[in-house]
Design a protein around this nucleic acid. Structure first.
Lengths: 197, 197
DNA sequence: CGCGTACTTGACGGGTCGGTCCAGAACTCC
DNA sequence: GGAGTTCTGGACCGACCCGTCAAGTACGCG
């Protein structure tokens, strides 16, 4: 009703995400987002309320997307579950290694910058990581059923360990560790997974 | 010579470190550091040059300290090397779990916030992590010599994996993951280390 | 067509930012 | 004691910060 919005909310969220991702929350100004999108600040505040609310909306979208990505990487038949897990770990390492700008992951950056002071960010980060852990655990159970992983292992604990390795690879990448070493971490982690038999 | 400095440089670095640690680089103002230390801004700039140089000095001190801590945790006779490694991993998880403010590690926060735009931060982060990895590898080799860890394993690769797990635990902690699960990660990682025999 | 409503724009406000500068204070050395 | 040097405190600079607001615009609906 009345005058319709002239901008695409999704495009604005994408632009805002890029700014927050690259400069951090405190390092990004609403003016920068306004000029990156061509919007006036009034429109920005009218649509998103405040800098913090805009960030949370960006963060939500980002978190949902990466959790979905993991879910889609790890879904499929049981006989390929172990292969999917290995491929996912290796792809994560390769992805971090390929990020030569060291931009890293917005979930990690946002949590690092804001978790001390913003419970909403903690809540969203935690939910996302737990969803990813659950996805990993599901795949691990499938690999156990198919006889690739030791069925005696606790799938949830293994999943949390794999998640820690994944987040660790990301942290090492941001600190400038070599691509080769990141890929070694992935391979070593895979080698140490408890195989069946 | 001439008029001597009235403040203790180390105390100022500590205060600045606390500010940067808690609020991040962009979120910390030189005015805040000045008023936290009681100094005038002239003294601050006279002694440290700029915000960025002050941060780098803080960062250097912090990095050196945590690398030293790891070295001191992991030094000792070969027959206790494996025990030291396990204790260190568990202590790291316990330490993160105890940090209920989710303040995390300044190395991780600094690298996350600044590595994209500041090569000096990348350099220092990387040097620190590689020093820690070397310390871990040394301890792992000792455990191999003493017959606790499989001598066929590549100590350097294992060390990098352990480092990734340690940084991953830190990342999970900042995202609000349960203390119990963090300690599970530590235990699971230790269980999966390749034992001798 | 005209009214009401929502959106757009950019100026504006009050505050803060990093950094500079200078007048005066405190010291060493001659 | 005077000259020279360094340090101190805070006023000050221009730029930028988040958020508001009023004036104008474009639409839906009767």
């Amino acid at each position: 009703m009345a005058r319709p919005r002239e901008f695409d909310e999704g495009a604005v969220l994408d632009a805002a995400r890029d700014q927050f991702w690259s400069k951090g929350y405190a390092g990004t100004s609403m003016d920068a987002i306004a000029s990156a999108t061509g919007l006036g600040k009034g429109s920005l505040y009218g649509a998103f309320g405040s800098k913090q609310q805009l960030f949370l909306q960006v963060f939500d979208t980002y978190c949902a997307r990466i959790a979905d990505d993991v879910a889609s990487n790890l879904s499929g038949p049981d006989d390929e579950a172990f292969g999917r897990l290995c491929a996912h770990i290796r792809a994560a390492a390769a992805g971090v290694a390929a990020d030569q700008r060291h931009r890293g992951c917005l979930l990690a950056k946002g949590a690092a910058e804001l978790s001390e002071h913003d419970p909403d960010v903690v809540y969203r980060s935690r939910q996302t990581l737990e969803r990813i852990a659950a996805t990993l655990a599901e795949d691990i159970r499938a690999a156990q059923r198919h006889g690739d992983l030791d069925p005696a292992a606790d799938a949830d604990q293994l999943a949390t360990l794999v998640l820690a390795v994944l987040r660790g690879i990301e942290a090492l990448g941001k600190a400038g560790v070599d691509a080769d070493r990141l890929e070694d971490v992935a391979d070593t982690a895979i080698d140490l997974l408890p195989r069946a038999g």
